[in-house]
Amino acid sequence: MYVERPPSAGLAGRLACGWHRVSEAAFTQLVVPDACVDLIWGAEGLYVAGPDTGPMPAALEAGETLAGVRFRPGAVGGFFGVPLQELRDSRVRLSDLPVGPGLLAELTKAAQTWPAEAAPPGLRAQVEARVRLLQTAVGRRLAASAGSPSVDPAAPAIATALGRGRSVAEVAWDLGYSERQLQRRSLLAFGYAPKTLQRIVRFQRALRLARAGTPLAEVAVTAGYADQAHLANDVKRLSGVRLSRLL
């Protein structure tokens, strides 16, 4: 069972959601690129799932639990203390990152303030509690660094324009950047070059349309693909499976 919860109001600008998964049987979950970065609490501790450029299968055992918070595309900034492209296509232990000691201290502090009588019974309740602890720790860490510039204010405009089918040259021109400046800002904000970011946001838009019941020929046109074959090929490259299976 996989469940997403909206973040608290104060974190909505940086986090897309808190989420948890309780695996009822052993299986492999296919994780596909979405331009997001997740902080995950799993069986072996805390780790960061960086921005992916292709499918990342994740094997789960029966009874295994995961709790996480998901940063919005372009909203990570310098939170983890390393350039985002260094986390691309990687799963990195939190303790190996500069933010690790401080964030683990915030988690410990948050856990200590949890009332003893409120310790939740049951596996699902416990993993939901972990999500809340993660949000609390991330919120405190963000508040502590509020005075330092971290997130590129142009990131949403870059992703939106690329997602609407504008070319890299057009987006750079619209925002007043050279293509080299756009490349640098995109790598810092998303961990991707603009062309890769464009493919991923277009892919995610196509998935949303298809899941809403839009006919695939219309999905291809609306999401900015040349035709339905282009859509099918791009989905296969980014997810490793056909669109029908992914849906």
Rank of each mutant, 00 (worst) to 15 (best):
A129N: 03
R141V: 10
S178C: 11
D152V: 00
P153V: 01
V171A: 01
A116D: 05
R180W: 07
V127C: 03
L188N: 05
A144K: 13
L134V: 05
A155Y: 05
L142D: 00
R141E: 15
L182F: 09
W173H: 15
D174G: 11
P156C: 12
A116K: 08
Y192W: 09
R140K: 11
G213T: 11
P156K: 05
W173T: 14
P149I: 13
A118C: 10
Y192P: 01
L187R: 08
G213D: 10
S150Y: 01
A146F: 01
V201Y: 02
A169F: 07
I158G: 05
E117K: 11
A125Y: 06
V171T: 11
A193N: 07
V219G: 04
W173V: 14
V168P: 00
R166S: 12
Q183W: 08
R202D: 04
A193K: 07
S178V: 06
G176E: 08
A118L: 14
T113I: 14
L187W: 04
L182Y: 06
T196C: 10
L134C: 03
F203Y: 13
Q126T: 06
S178L: 11
L162Q: 13
L133T: 00
A210N: 12
G122Y: 00
V151A: 05
A169H: 07
A159S: 11
L207A: 07
A144I: 01
K195Y: 12
G122V: 02
V138Y: 00
L123H: 13
T214C: 14
Y192N: 03
W173N: 09
G191L: 02
A172R: 00
E179G: 10
Y177G: 04
V219W: 02
A217L: 13
L142V: 10
L123V: 15
R202H: 06
Q112A: 09
Q198I: 05
A193T: 10
A157P: 04
A125C: 09
V151I: 15
A144R: 14
V127R: 02
Q126A: 06
L142S: 03
D174N: 11
E128P: 01
R185P: 05
K195A: 15
A137N: 01
P149V: 13
A137Q: 03
S145L: 12
R202M: 07
R141P: 08
P194M: 04
T160Q: 14
K195M: 09
P149Y: 12
S150P: 03
P156Y: 04
A146R: 15
A193C: 06
R164T: 09
R166A: 07
T136K: 10
R185H: 10
R180A: 15
A119D: 09
S186F: 10
Q135D: 05
R166G: 03
L209N: 10
L162K: 12
E117G: 06
R124H: 11
Q112G: 12
V138I: 06
R164D: 11
V131R: 10
G191Q: 01
